[in-house]
Design a protein around this nucleic acid. Sequence first.
RNA 1: GCGCCUGUAGCUCAGCCGGAUAGAGCAGCGGACUUCUAAUCCGCUGGUCGGGGGUUCGAGUCCCUCCAGGCGCGCCA
Length: 544
Amino acid sequence: MRKEVEKMVGEAMGKLGLEGKVQVDYPRDPKFGDYTTNVAMVMARRFKTDPRGLARRLAGVLEHPMIERVEVAGPGFVNLFMRREWWFRAFSKVLEEGEEFGRLDLGKGRKVQVEFVSANPTGPLHIGHGRGAAVGDSLARILEKAGYQVEREYYINDAGRQIRILVESIWARCLELRGENVEFPEGGYRGRYVVELAKRVLEEMPQVLESPREEALERLAQWGAREILGEIRGDLEAFGVTFDSWFSEKTLYERDLVGKALERLKERGFIYEEGGAQWFASSRLGDDKDRVVVRANGEPTYLASDIAYHALKAERGFALLVDVWGADHHGYVPRIRAALEALGYDPQMLQVLLIQMVSLIKGGEKVSMSTRQGEFVPLAELVDEVGKDAVRFIFLTRKCDAHLDFDVDLAKSQSEENPVFYVQYAHARISSIFRTAGERNIPVPASLTDVELASLELREEMELIKKVLQFPDLIQGMALSLEPHRLTYYLQELAAGFHSYYNHHRVLVEDKELREARMALVKGVQVVVGEGLRLLGVDAPCSM
RNA sequence: GCGCCUGUAGCUCAGCCGGAUAGAGCAGCGGACUUCUAAUCCGCUGGUCGGGGGUUCGAGUCCCUCCAGGCGCGCCA
C-alpha cells in the first residue's frame, strides 16, 4: 500500500520534472495525515530551493482518486489524507487472504539459511540458548513469510575437545559410582546430568568399563553426545523449535572439507607458517590479527572447521546466511567474514545476530550463567515454570543485542499481567464474540470479504483498520533488519487497540449492516493477531 | 590498552533510511462489570534521551570526545 502511495508521489514529482528516491512514512500523529513524505525537503537541499514552496507545488500536482486532500505542513512535509474507501478496499483483502495476509515476495524464493542454537552436545540447553532459539526460530518464520526459502540448521560441535572432556567426566563419575577414588578431570563438567548419564552407563552397558580405556571412551563419546543431543532436541521441540538440518562438525573432517578449505586458502596466499603452526592472514581482510588454523602439533583449530563449514554454506547456494551466536563470540565475526572473502565469496552474505546474555534474576539476585561451573538454569526448567508461550514472547521483547534481565519470580508471580496473555486474550475474546453470535443464532456472513464496511465510522475503527494494514510493512521491516522483536511490540499495540475498542463498543448490535461490518473488522484483527503469534511460536487460543 | 554491545520515566524497555509535541508495560493513586470473557478498560502522576562538542532546515537517531556497565581480545571451544 505504501508502495502505491510512493508511486503516486513519484508521478507527481515527474510532473514537476524532478526525479529521485521517494520516501513515504506513516506520521506519528493522525493530524499529519495517513501518509507523509519529506521529498520536498530532501529535494530542496539538492536543488537549493525553498522546501515549502517545492512542497506546495508538489501538493498541487498530487492527484489520485483515492486521495482526499493534500496538505503542506511544518518545514515542508507533504501530508496525504486518503479517502475511507482506500482503507476499506485494502481491509477486504485481509479477510480474503486470511492467514496468507502479510506474505511477501521480498525474498523471491531465494534460499536463506538460519543457523541457530548450535549448542555443544555436552550438556542441557540453558536459558541463554533459549533466547537464541526464540530469536532464530521466529526470524526463520518471518523470513519464510517474506518469501524466502528458509533452512534452519543446527551445527553440532562434535569434533572438538569438549566432547572429550564430557566423556572423561562421565567416565570419572562411573568410577566414582563404583566406589573408586578418582580425580575428576580438570575443567570437567560437574553438572548433575553427567552423574545421570554415568548411572545409565552402569545400568545399560556396564561391560564398556571393562574395555581398554581409550576404546571405552570412544564408545562413550558417541553414546553420550547422542544422548545429550536427543535431550536438546526434545527441549527444543517442547519450546516449539525444530530444525531442517543437524550438521555434524565431524563430517567436515570425514569428508576432508577442512583440509580442502585450508588448501584453497593456501592457493590464494592467505596461509603462512610460523612457529610450526599454520596461520590464516585474516588481518589483511579486516581482522585484528592473524589466526592459527593448524597448531604446531598438527591439530586443526576450531576456526579451521568453522572456515570449512562456512565455505560449505556459501557453496550450498544461499542468498543469505544468518548465524545466531552468543554475543561472547562477537570477535569471530571479522575472522569468518575474512575467510569468506579470502575464499572469493561476498562476506556480506553472512549476517551474524549476536545474542546478548540473559541474566536470570531469582530472589532479587542475579544468577550467573556458565555451563562449566555447573551453575545454570536449564531452559526446560524455565519453560516448565513459566510456560513456553511466555518464555518465547519475553525473549523477543527486546532487541537481541541488549542484555536481558529475566526475573523468574516476577514472571511467575505476575503471570496474570504478562504481555503474552494480553495479546492471547485479544485473540480469545474475538473467538468468543463469534461463539456468542452462534449461541444467539446471529448469522455470520459466509464471506466476510464482501461485507460493506462503510458503516465503520468511528475513529477507533479506522485506527484498528490502519494498524492491521501495517502488518505487511512490519514483516518487510523485520525481514530486512533481521529484528524479530518488533513483532511483540506491534502485537501489544494492536491488542491494546482492540481491547479498548471492545470495552467501548459492541460488535453484536441490532443494526445488521453495522454488526457485520464490525464482525469483519474484528475478524481481520484476529487474523493478524493469530498470524503474528504464530510467527513468534506462541499459541493463539480461542478461549482462555 | 584495543575492539564490540549497552546507557531513554521510579523499574524493565520500544523508538524503523535523521523528521513535526519522545512512547509502552510495570509500579503508584483514583474510577468502570444487569452488557460479546474485568487475564480487560478509563483517568492522573512521572523525562537534563549518560555528559560535552560537531554535522543540518531538523539529532534519542549520524560524527568526535569523555563517563559508566557488560562482553571479547589463546597454537580454548
